[in-house]
């Protein structure tokens, strides 16, 4: 019974990985009309000296960890705030989860319009409040483009953390809460010393899941900036797309893909270990 599953896994997962690793050691551009030429580790050596690779790696790290850190903090605060809502007020909890259900393309275009330099609501607000007298070029500024894309991602991911933290809070034993109350623990002290420790495991697992999701996130970035201006929002996944499907440098793109795979494997191993420790 295991054999069919192994065959399916081999075809669906194993073959692309082996093929990517094999291609990463070749020079292959279908536009050149030639078969792949073995080049050993030349693609990886070229990567080390390629400034775009390091910029993409840096952007990937900022996008991935920045989004997770901010969304997790906001998610934790919101979960604590809405924890005790009851009756009709519980509809707020449902509303808070709606961004999670919005398709990524809609999120991307929503934020493109909101952050449009000329007609966006963000600039209008900032100018009305006299915070700035000039419209800010959010998405076409080398400085602001990446933070803007991160903001869109945070908006989309925060509900996931609210959901996970809400579940973790619901699992805090009543006796623990009651004991703390007996000791006159209230408000922030209750959140910090009693509830947050119970949210730690959930935070770790949810964060790792979102790190993997952000690491692979192509759609939002492509729809908002296509990796620009310049390489300001180019992450590894966007760069691989450009290399493979607009420059057709399949050997070099595969080398980037292999590095990307190794990094993802590290996250996956960390996630698996954490799950094991949690259970």
């Amino acid at each position: 019974m295991i054999l069919p599953a192994l065959i399916a896994i081999g075809v669906v997962i194993g073959y692309p990985i082996v093929r990517a690793i094999q291609l990463s050691t070749t020079e292959f551009n279908p536009l050149a009309g030639a078969d792949p030429t073995p080049v050993g580790t030349a693609n990886f050596e070229q990567l080390v000296d390629d400034p775009i690779f390091w910029e993409a790696l840096r952007n990937t790290a900022i996008y991935t960890f920045g989004s997770v850190a901010i969304a997790a903090i906001i998610g934790a605060m919101v979960a604590l705030l809405v924890e005790n809502l009851s009756g009709r007020a519980r509809v707020v909890k449902t509303l808070l989860l709606t961004p999670w259900a919005v398709p990524f393309v809609v999120v991307a275009f929503l934020f493109r319009y909101m952050f449009d330099a000329q007609s966006g609501v963000i600039n209008a607000l900032l100018m009305d409040l006299n915070i700035t007298d000039q419209p800010v070029d959010w998405l076409v500024s080398s400085t602001w483009a990446l933070p803007t894309v991160v903001a869109a991602n945070v908006w989309a991911q925060t509900p996931f953390f609210v959901l996970v933290f809400g579940a973790a809070l619901a699992a805090v034993p009543n006796e623990v809460i009651e004991s703390a109350r007996v000791d006159s623990t209230r408000g922030l002290a209750m959140a910090r010393h009693i509830k947050l420790p119970y949210m730690r495991n959930a935070a770790l697992i949810a964060s790792l899941l979102m790190v993997v999701a952000n690491f692979n996130d192509f759609g939002k970035i492509w729809a908002m900036t296509e990796g620009g201006p310049g390489y300001a929002t180019t992450t590894l996944v966007v760069w691989v797309y450009r290399l493979a499907f607009t420059s057709f440098e399949l050997g070099y793109a595969s080398a980037v893909g292999v590095i990307w795979l190794v990094l993802l494997l590290l996250f996956a191993i960390a996630y698996a270990r954490m799950l094991r420790r949690g259970s």
Partner: peptide, 18 residues
Amino acid sequence: FSAGYGPVMAGLQQIVTS
């Protein structure tokens, strides 16, 4: 052109945005 357009346009974007 397929290989070269990216670096040129990225540089041009850098010029006009930074």
